[in-house]
Simulated assay, not measured.
Amino acid sequence: MKDQQSLLATARAKLEDALVAKSLRRSGERFAILEEVYSRDDHFDADDLFQAMQQKAYPVSRATVYNTLEVLVDCGLVIRHHFGEEDNSKSRYEKSLGRQQHAHLVCTVCHHVKEFCDPRLHLIKTNVGNALQFNVASHSLVFYGHCTDDGCETRPDRDTSASIPTQDLSQ
C-alpha cells in the first residue's frame, strides 16, 4: 500500500510540473482523474474512465477526461495504445509510472487484453539495438488472436477435429 501511495505522490508531482510548464489549470478534476487512473490495473478507454468517475459521483465532464488523458500521455504518466479494434480511432490507455516493460495479447473477438512479461523480450530489444546501432527507448509488442479461456462468453466455438496440429518448438 505504501508503494502505491508513493507512486501516486510521484505521479501527482509529475502532473503538477507538467501543468505548470504548459500553463494549464491545476484543477481538482485533473488530479481526481489521475488518482482513478492509478487505482486501475486494466486497459481502459476514455469512456470507461468517464463512467468510473460518474459511478463515484465525481462531477467531471467527458471533455475534461479526454483533455486530461492527453496531458497524462504527454507527460509520460499514461501510455496510449491502438489495439486494432474495429473502431481504429478508439484508444486504450494504461498507467505507465512504476510499470515494467511488457507485451500484450489481444483477443480479436472479445477485445480482452492480457499482459505478459518475458525476459527474452529485453534481450531481443538489446540485441537489435546493438546490431543496428540504435538506442531503443521502449518497444511495443502485441499478439492478436482468440481467447481460449472458458470464461470468455464471446469466444468462437471451435471444431477440434479441424484444429491445426501444433509443433513443439522447444527442441
Rank of each mutant, 00 (worst) to 15 (best):
Y66A: 03
L69N: 09
L49N: 11
L77W: 07
F50G: 01
V71Y: 08
D48T: 15
A57L: 09
V60C: 10
L72N: 06
V78S: 00
V73H: 03
Q55I: 04
L72Q: 12
H82F: 09
F83D: 12
L49S: 08
N67I: 01
F50E: 01
D74P: 00
R80T: 03
R80A: 10
R80K: 08
V78P: 02
V60F: 04
Q51S: 09
L69R: 13
L77P: 06
R80G: 04
D74R: 13
S61R: 07
M53H: 04
H82I: 05
Q54W: 03
Q54Y: 06
R80E: 09
E70S: 09
E85Q: 15
S61C: 04
E70Q: 14
I79A: 05
A57H: 12
D74E: 14
D74L: 06
G84C: 05
S61W: 00
E86G: 09
E85A: 07
L72H: 07
D74S: 14
A63Q: 13
Y58C: 03
R80W: 00
T64P: 03
V71Q: 11
I79K: 06
C75T: 14
A57W: 02
G76L: 03
Q55P: 02
S61N: 05
A57E: 13
V60E: 02
D48H: 12
E86I: 14
L69K: 10
Q51V: 11
V73C: 08
T64A: 15
S61M: 03
P59C: 09
L49P: 06
T64C: 04
P59I: 07
V78E: 02
D47G: 05
T64K: 07
V60D: 05
L77D: 08
V65L: 12
L49G: 04
Y58N: 02
V78D: 00
F83I: 14
D87A: 12
V65W: 03
D74T: 13
S61K: 10
L72Y: 09
H81Y: 12
E86F: 08
Q54V: 12
D74G: 09
C75N: 11
K56T: 06
R62M: 07
D87H: 10
F50N: 06
V78A: 00
F83N: 11
L49C: 09
M53L: 15
Y58W: 01
Y58T: 05
E85N: 13
A57P: 00
Q55G: 14
H81L: 03
L72E: 10
M53K: 11
A63M: 08
V71L: 07
C75V: 14
T68E: 01
A57K: 11
Q55E: 15
Q51G: 01
D47P: 02
D48A: 14
T68G: 00
L69Y: 08
Q54K: 15
D47E: 11
V60Y: 02
A52C: 05
E86Q: 12
G84Q: 12
H82R: 11
L69C: 14
C75Y: 04
T68C: 04
E70P: 00
P59A: 13
A63N: 15
P59M: 08
I79D: 14
V60W: 00
S61D: 10
R62W: 05
Q51N: 12
E86K: 13
T68W: 01
L69G: 10
